[in-house]
């Protein structure tokens, strides 16, 4: 189980990386970030890129900072960076809670947030977070930067809006308001496995307990994670009780189009949405 041969390029500047990608992307060259998805695929020879552009030594891509109310996550920021609160307020807590579900501790030391979005596994956690929080992706190539909204980024199973020569240089996540409450629930077969279904809910509520802002997303069931506007609308303006939460969960379960195992995944969907909402309301 050894990868097919390839050429390894290790640029140290963004410009160099973009130039290498422009040159090798047409030959199926690929970015190597944490390698925690790409290297296993290469070991299994499911992927055989003849060129790897390793971005781990590119200066500046490891930045993780808050600027103007936005958390900016550079391309080589690892999953582990989020295990301790990486942003002020509820966003930091949310990212820390989610990060514990990604793979295993050693894999989190290498795998990157941005790599996870580029890999676009339907069962990965960060793409769900990006979708629910309306992240903005900053893609870079010799043509310059291009900003892509989360909703337009992941197009399907292992498929994104990135051009082959584009590097996802950073992802921007807006900070959450101090009164935002979140809930995250995931079902997987074993500890550390990819999710069979997961839901992320972020709610804000007014002084009277009514929901003023609702974000609700589902991952692991459809080819790409997404928000469910209909269920969000049910919640908005209402005081969520058990019945409403159940109705919202039911609506997501009905609307979802599972890739496989339809009945089972719908049942799981209902459960994870319900539990995520309950957490967010607690």
């Amino acid at each position: 189980m050894k990868p097919a041969p390839f050429h390894w390029h290790a640029p140290t500047t963004l410009a160099e990386a973009a130039a290498l990608l422009a040159e090798y992307a047409p030959q199926d060259g690929r970015v190597l970030a944490g390698g925690q998805s790409l290297l296993p695929a290469m070991a299994l020879r499911i992927a055989r890129p003849p060129h790897l552009v390793d971005i781990n030594r590119v200066a500046g891509l490891d930045l993780l900072e808050v600027v103007d109310g936005v958390l900016r996550i550079g391309a080589v920021v690892r999953h582990a960076a989020f295990l301790r609160e990486a942003a002020p307020g509820p966003l930091g807590a949310l990212l820390a809670a989610v990060a514990r579900h990604i793979a295993h501790w050693p894999i989190r030391q290498r795998g990157t947030f941005c790599g996870s979005l580029c890999h676009a596994d339907p069962a990965a956690e960060w793409p769900l977070v990006a979708a629910v929080l309306d992240a903005v992706m900053v893609a870079h190539s010799l043509r310059g930067d291009r900003r892509i909204a989360a909703a337009a980024f992941q197009r399907g199973l292992l498929d994104t809006a990135l051009e082959p020569d584009e590097l996802l240089r950073a992802v921007e996540l807006p900070l959450l308001a101090a009164d935002a409450r979140f809930g995250f629930e995931e079902v997987s077969r074993r500890a550390g496995d990819f999710a069979q279904a997961m839901a992320l809910a972020v709610l804000r509520r007014g002084p009277d307990g009514r929901v003023t802002e609702a974000r609700l997303g589902l991952g692991g069931v459809e080819p790409a994670p997404r928000r469910f506007p209909q269920a969000e609308a049910m919640l908005r303006g209402a005081i969520p009780d058990a019945a409403l939460i159940d109705a919202a969960a039911h609506s997501v379960a009905q609307a979802a189009q599972p890739m496989e195992d339809e009945g089972y995944r719908r049942a799981l969907t209902r459960t994870v949405v319900q539990r995520a909402l309950l957490q967010a309301c607690a």
Binding site: M1, K2, W8, A10, G35, Q36, L39, P40, A43, L44, D54, N56, A80, H104, W105, P106, I107, Q109, R110
Partner: peptide, 27 residues
């Protein structure tokens, strides 16, 4: 396993544990 699941290859890289099967030696 050589694909990142079993952890038999775990080593420390600058103090943190990594899967040595999921890193290139050149890295």
């Amino acid at each position: 396993c050589e694909h990142g699941v079993c952890g038999a290859c775990t080593v420390l890289l600058d103090g943190v544990p990594v899967r040595a099967c999921l890193m290139l030696a050149v890295q």
